[in-house]
Amino acid sequence: MSNVNTCASLDTGNDILILHEIRHALRKLLDDGESTIIDLRAIPMAPGEEARIEAMLGQGELSATLNALGKSTINETAFSGAWLITHYNTEDEILGKFIEISKLPSILASQHEDIEVALEQLTHQLLV
């Protein structure tokens, strides 16, 4: 299936609604420290709308790549506190796209369980 009917005038208006939602989420983050995650795949979009949202959000200071079950890109947008997270599978196909409004996306932090494994491994290595 290809997008044969792409047309500049097609618009669900959801791109603007998402920007409003991000604005509210940023306010909530500042006031209560509460994070929000928006699943972009759960929202109906006209052809080109998702790309338009991404263009409007722009690129901020920080980008990170995670390699776990395929690649994930975690990019801070031009609006500090709003992050665009894209999960890919091992074939580089997109599995999910999320906007996380938080100081640091939770998936970036080293995880307790992984640190435990690391401690065990390092201890073992020093003993050998």
Binding site: A42, L69, G96, E113
Partner: peptide, 18 residues
Amino acid sequence: VSRRGFLKFCATAASIMA
């Protein structure tokens, strides 16, 4: 699979389950 991988799996599963 690391904990991060597992969390990525859960995030995608949530999206799949709507």
